[in-house]
């Protein structure tokens, strides 16, 4: 309040306690919506029943899909790469909370841990919506995702670069009617990218902002009941700068190939190999033969059906 801003503590207390904390039954949900519910919330459900799902993921590796995790469900995702940067463990985490049937709120955090220290950029938030069109076989599903950018610092000689990308995705998902084992994803990524270069004195010597409209897509091949091969490719902003030159923003290819394995219904394991050298860095492109700069990335996504757990424990949020 001293800075003239709104009292945050009071707002936080109110948000945490208002309404949702009370154990009152909501209005009855028609059957068609209930079938979309990720988990059944009953007081008598066992933990095994609760964690049996089904659960839906709302992403491929990086790109959002036309699905959301669903109401009363939360997912915690994490991934790491020991090979993306020499001598550094890069990692990223996402906390996604279902905000009703067709929306979710995301909290993202990325960091790089190296021998020089820990770089932990500012966490960011995102919103994802599944467009609620009637679901019929062969008809694509559509979604929108908005991801606020995470500023990232990069040091080149005595210069400091701050890079930031904010994305708005419009995506579609098509699940083959006859070929039910194939799911295609496609969409457009509207990226607002900025690059600011400052010198050792902290003076800005160049700033560039650019809005890019970039394609993105992917596919899933269901290999068995628990695993699917996933391929994802798209263009992403690429930052370019060399001392003595003006900063610039172009685009580069980002591609990953790997699997998503449902170890348990509530636990998904990700593994992939990826090409993303020309993305999000001012390093020069490696060219097609430069596989030495590819990386291997491992991750996991854990579903927490908090609504069903709260229902079982306290009777709140039950169906």
């Amino acid at each position: 309040m001293t800075d003239g801003r709104f009292p945050r503590t009071a707002a936080l207390v109110l948000l945490a306690s208002t309404g949702l904390a009370h154990a009152e039954e909501p209005a009855a949900v028609p059957p068609e919506a209930a079938t979309d519910a990720p988990t059944v919330r009953r007081r008598t459900s066992t933990l095994a029943e609760i964690y049996r799902g089904p659960f839906r993921s709302s992403r491929l590796f990086a790109m959002p899909t036309a699905d959301v995790v669903g109401a009363y469900v939360m997912t915690v995702s994490g991934e790491g790469s020991l090979l993306q940067q020499p001598g550094a463990l890069t990692s990223a985490g996402v906390l996604a909370i279902g905000f009703g049937d067709i929306a979710q709120l995301e909290y993202r955090h990325t960091s790089a841990i190296s021998v020089e220290g820990v770089t932990a950029p500012v966490p960011a938030v995102g919103v994802q919506l599944a467009i609620p069109l009637p679901r019929r076989p062969g008809i694509p599903a559509f979604g929108v995702a908005f991801r606020l950018g995470v500023p990232r610092d990069e040091q080149i000689d005595a210069f400091e670069l701050e890079e930031k990308v904010t994305d708005l995705y419009l995506v579609a998902r098509w699940r083959g009617g006859a070929a039910g084992w194939l799911t295609l994803h496609g969409g457009t990524r509207v990226s607002s990218a900025s690059l600011t270069v400052t010198d050792a004195m902290g003076l800005a010597i160049g700033t560039v902002e650019k809005r890019l409209v970039l394609p993105t897509g992917g596919l899933e091949l269901q290999m068995n009941d628990e695993a699917k091969l996933v391929a994802e490719a798209g263009l992403a902003p690429r930052f370019m700068w060399m001392p003595g030159a003006d900063p610039a923003i172009g685009y580069g290819l980002l591609a990953r190939l790997g699997l998503r394995w449902s170890v348990l219904p509530s636990v998904i394991f990700d593994g992939s190999i990826g090409y993303q050298q020309e993305v999000g860095t001012v390093e020069p492109p490696a060219g097609r033969g430069g596989i030495v700069q590819w990386d291997i990335r491992l991750g996991a996504e854990v579903f927490v059906p908090w609504g069903a757990l709260a229902c079982r424990a306290t009777g709140a949020f039950c169906d």
Partner: peptide, 30 residues
């Protein structure tokens, strides 16, 4: 999106964009 969580209470997840503001300066609120 507004979600009617309870008969007497709803939650909203919103994104707001302003004139002369880049996509990166948009506001996400609940």
């Amino acid at each position: 999106v507004r979600y009617q969580a309870l008969r007497w209470s709803s939650v909203e997840l919103l994104v707001r964009h302003r004139e002369d503001e880049g996509l990166g300066d948009s506001t996400v609120m609940i």
